[in-house]
Design a binder for these strands. Structure first.
Lengths: 235, 235
DNA sequence: GTCTATATGAAGATAGAC
DNA sequence: GTCTATCTTCATATAGAC
């Protein structure tokens, strides 16, 4: 069996408890509690779940361990709170780009750049790493993250594809799979290489180049039969 | 600081030590050692690095802890050996498909299917998970895996793209990025969702569908201007 | 709520016999 | 090389004073 499992805080109880949403204001937090959450995020994301000790978190938060245990049931509980606090970092906002009235190329470039920059950032790399490694022990956590970040992002882009296809500006068959694969292509190998610490942080120019490449390929692949007005050269 | 670091077996010493290659025959292993490695792989990949205890490994290998320590310097050492043993699972063989004389579509379908099935398998998921989470503490391990699996796979496909482009059968600009993004698109979101335990193992039919979708998109995007003989409808 | 001090247990590593 | 038994360290969690 895996490690011990005294207080499996996420077994079933909080299944539906997704991440806090942008507008959600929770009851004001005590300063100590805020300090704890801040410190815990820092330590967990730096050292991983097992590597993080409650003592280190208490030290960094400048509180005693007992205080820490008065705010959270235990390590599992604290960990879940931290990951949920951070999971919406994987959310990429599609609507605002749609609302800006961008055409497909400009929208995909904007969304792609935002997405890839975010995914390659130190913060999200850390969340990704710890999430992937601990997901098996925290079944509800994966769903919470999926519903707070990647899920809505993909759905948003798929909706856009469906809309553009209806307008005849794109020709996307399965919009959900297409959105999935577009995001996948963006990550390409660079995200993995950085995950396993082979590459350092990618230069902005490389990120831009890869986004452009992926967008070009996507548009070329999903060009409608008869483009409405003009033909693009880059395809 | 991260955990303790008494014997950082991979700090620098074995940087160049890549995974064993298919043909490599090492000095014959004692049965005990083989049992240890088998058990260690099972326990590490199931429970993660921190979750795996030397005692559990010894128990599963049916040896004493002391025996275990007579074969390996410590937990870090054993872990590195196991991951290196398993890392070439991420290698996807391109050459054999090339040698089979397949056309671009058939080759991409074959390679893509092999790749995605492998990446979605329980074994590779486990390797991926533990690798990603422990890479920061084992700097040399990431490079070893990259050089044993993903690196050669990507290079092989990129070479193929270059060759086909030279022949006028494909039109691929940056072959390395294209190969990267093709593999990325194959993984799409399903790999991630399985990583965070939201989805169960994908059905073979879904895997096939996603491979076909990615291949169609890739070919449509990289069709040469004037196809040599016939035009494909699926694009 | 918050602290200091401590109980408890788990796991990495080793001593010494065979 | 292999075992049994043990040492040591350290992290989670709590008791009890303020």
């Amino acid at each position: 069996m895996a490690i011990k499992a005294k207080k499996q805080a996420f077994a079933a109880p909080v299944e539906a408890l997704a991440c806090a949403h942008p507008g959600t204001i929770l009851p004001p937090m005590s300063p100590k509690r805020a300090a704890i959450e801040k410190a815990a995020a820092s330590v967990f994301l730096r050292d991983g779940f097992a590597g993080a000790s409650m003592e280190a978190i208490a030290r960094e938060a400048k509180v005693s361990k007992a205080t820490l245990y008065s705010h959270f049931q235990g390590k599992d509980d604290l960990f879940g709170a931290i990951v949920r606090n951070n999971c919406q970092q994987m959310l990429v906002d599609i609507e605002s780009s749609v609302a800006a009235g961008l055409g497909p190329r400009e929208l995909l470039l904007a969304v792609g750049l935002k997405f890839l920059k975010k995914m390659m950032s130190d913060e999200v790399m850390a969340v990704y790493r710890i999430l992937v490694s601990e997901a098996p022990r925290f079944p509800a956590l994966g769903r919470a993250v999926q519903n707070a970040g990647p899920g809505p992002s993909c759905n948003g882009l798929a909706d856009y594809f469906r809309h553009q296809t209806a307008l005849g500006l794109l020709a996307v068959g399965d919009a959900d799979v297409a959105a999935d694969q577009f995001f996948g292509a963006l990550l390409g190998g660079i995200h993995f290489r950085r995950l396993i610490c082979v590459d350092a942080q990618a230069k902005p120019s490389e990120i831009k180049f890869r986004v452009a490449t992926a967008v070009d390929a996507f548009l070329a692949a999903h060009q409608p039969k008869a483009p409405p007005t003009k033909r693009r050269k880059g395809a």
